[in-house]
Design a protein around this nucleic acid. Structure first.
Length: 573
RNA sequence: GGUCCCGUGGUGCAGUUUGGAGUGCACGCCGGCCUGUCAAGCCGGAGGUCGCGGGUUCAAAUCCCGUCGGGACCGCCA
């Protein structure tokens, strides 16, 4: 039907008779016998010179045959890849007429999200979306190639899975053949891939769809895609190497440049330096330790277990009283008792409401530790250590963080996460990752004595302040798993009920294993320069979980419910 | 469950603070003119439940309450 793609035509094609197919992007009429139409396909636009365009309208589907020729002197268009040439002597065949689109098929205007999604098939015609889909395809392809090269085998796992009461809320699927029982859609292939390790697959990967019935965000959809991997007989470093290779390959495939090797930062360092377990390494403003400086302070607000400060370099002039007050409000909102700000004057003197409470030695200490220069704005928080980290980490992002999709790409591995995060209502520790995460070998004996101090062999991958994924070395030995369940307050019977199939499998020779999962929607969004994963998903849902295109979710017929053995409750009042 | 922003011809916006005739801008659409444009240009025209419901008022796009939808965020996301 066609000989060429619109966007591919170049001066080297001059003289060829070609046929292109696509949509009428624009037409420019110059009287009865001269008109230009721009024909668009997924590769771009080409200008066709036609003898009148009266029967053509925007988005008509056409097949144009003609001869590629050099554009006349002075009429080339440097903004188009095809701008040196045009198709002349055109015959235009209308393959299909079209109504005017409900919004312009153009990158210049951003239509209402609801309208974009209702007419997603039109939205997808836009350059931006075409580009994003192709970035996505490139990433998928690069990852597959990388994983294959590294000896991994793609295995598909079930979508109809079994409920696991831990973790994210699951989508539930009623069983027609077993009334009263339900499948769930997997929040990840976690347990399936561990079974594959017991099955001797050794090196598994999958570009896997995962489903979680949790509230939606710019970086979260109900269904999302992970590069999921699991490997046997590996150390943590080996897992990190495999994933590093894969994501650097993906970035290189998209951008043409290979980002720097990915630094590995222990969790406690990330929290101390950036106040976050997903630090954005594109900017500094490190949280500096001031506790020692105020060891003997007379200033009551600084008689605290931990004092840290950040230096918002050069921002003193930008922050007048109002903005400083709202920063203070923000800090209090985050749970701080207060926020101390100091501006560094021209002579290096500190200008601050609390300056008079600080000794000269303390003031010098602040300047030295924060490497303060005239014009800098210094922000200090004194409190419990975890609170100081959290508040200053948030302020650091508020003050310094560029949009997520701005370059450069700064990946980071965060390692040695705590095994547990806090206590539940019954006073039992809560797994930070999941209950099959291997404790750090040096901390095993703390399981029974000081569980909250136990580090784990788990790790996150971060890119420009977005969490891209997480993984861990798993527990493969029954004795350690049993100790962990005991620490979590889970009895052997409960464990059997919840994860029996996995624990049974582990009795038959489970190899040491570990893995990781990379959130591809987020990775692709960042590589595509988007700050919302909807932009890299062909058919996403709105924030309230609706699909304006199909109107899903919808009620189903009573007969369907009857077949499933399901009865609806009256709507809540 | 909560906080904040948004909803005005097909599209994007202004108008809302301080109530006074559906007022304005740009694009698109329809018709006409136009032989080198490229976000073509010029002339003319059509097109409105100001998301929806209620309230206040002589009078509501504008103020108040509720509700629906979109977005950002908190909670939630082992």
């Amino acid at each position: 039907m066609r000989t060429d793609m619109c966007g591919d035509l170049r001066a080297t094609d001059i003289g060829r008779t070609v046929a292109v197919c696509g949509w009428v992007a624009r037409r420019r009429e110059h009287g009865e016998h001269l008109a230009f139409i721009d024909v668009r396909d997924r590769t771009g636009l080409v200008q066709c010179v036609v003898d009148g365009a009266h029967d053509l309208r925007s988005e008509y589907v056409v097949r144009v045959t003609g001869t590629v020729r050099q554009r006349p002197e002075g009429t080339t268009n440097a903004d188009l890849t095809t701008g040196d040439v045009e198709i002349g002597d055109c015959t235009v065949e209308v393959l299909n007429a079209a109504e005017p689109p409900p919004f312009p098929i153009s990158d210049r205007v951003d239509a209402d999200e609801n309208v974009r999604l209702r007419y997603r098939y039109l939205d997808l015609r836009r350059d931006r979306m075409q580009r994003n889909l192709r970035v996505r395809a490139k990433v998928n392809s690069a990852l597959r190639t990388s994983m294959e090269r590294q000896g991994f085998v793609e295995v598909e796992t079930p979508l109809l899975w079994t409920p696991t009461p831990e973790g994210a809320r699951e989508f539930v699927v009623p069983s027609r053949l077993q009334h009263g029982s339900f499948y769930v859609l997997p929040q990840s292939p976690q347990l399936a891939k561990q079974l594959l390790m017991v099955g001797g697959v050794d090196r598994y990967y999958q570009i896997a769809r995962c489903l979680r019935d949790e509230d939606l965000r710019a970086d979260r959809q109900f269904e999302f895609t992970q590069l999921d991997i699991e490997a046997s007989f590996v150390t943590q470093d080996e897992v990190l190497d495999v994933i590093s290779e894969a994501v650097l390959d993906a970035a290189e495939a998209v951008t043409g440049n290979r980002p720097d090797p990915i630094p590995r930062i222990p969790w406690v360092d990330a929290m101390e330096r950036y106040g976050s377990d997903k630090p954005d390494l594109r900017f500094g403003m490190i949280l500096m330790e001031l506790t020692e400086v105020f060891a003997a302070t007379e200033f009551n607000a600084f008689k605290a277990p931990c004092i840290k400060g950040i230096n918002a370099a050069g921002l003193a002039a930008d922050y007048g009283r109002n903005k400083l007050d709202s920063l203070t409000d923000r800090a209090k909102q985050l749970g701080a008792k207060g926020l101390v700000w100091l501006k560094v004057g021209d002579g290096g003197a500190l200008d601050s409401p609390v300056a008079k409470f600080l000794s000269p030695q303390e003031q010098e200490g602040i300047v030295a530790v924060l490497r303060a220069q005239p014009g800098d704005l210094l922000l200090l928080v004194a409190d419990e250590r975890h609170k100081v980290r959290e508040v200053l980490g948030t302020l650091r992002n508020d003050l310094g963080r560029p949009p997520v999709s701005d370059g450069p790409y700064r990946y980071a591995w965060i390692t040695e996460f705590p095994l547990f995060e806090g206590l539940d209502d019954q006073g039992n520790p809560v797994s930070a990752h999941h209950p099959f995460t291997m404790p750090h070998p040096d901390d095993l004996d703390l399981l029974e004595t000081d569980p909250l101090k136990v580090r784990s062999q788990s790790y996150d991958l971060v890119l420009n302040g977005w969490e891209l994924g997480s993984g861990s070395i798993r527990i493969h030995r029954a004795d350690i798993q049993s100790r962990l369940f005991k620490t979590l307050g889970i009895t052997d019977e409960e464990a059997q009920g919840r994860f029996g199939f996995l624990l049974n499998a582990f009795r038959f020779g489970a190899p040491p294993h570990g893995g990781f999962a990379v959130g591809l929607d987020r990775l692709i969004a960042i590589l595509a320069g988007e700050d919302n994963i909807r932009e890299v998903i062909a058919f996403p849902k709105t924030q309230s979980g609706l699909d304006p295109l199909t109107d899903a979710p919808k009620p189903v017929a009573d007969t369907v419910l009857r077949d499933l053995g399901v009865r609806l409750l009256p709507p809540p009042t």
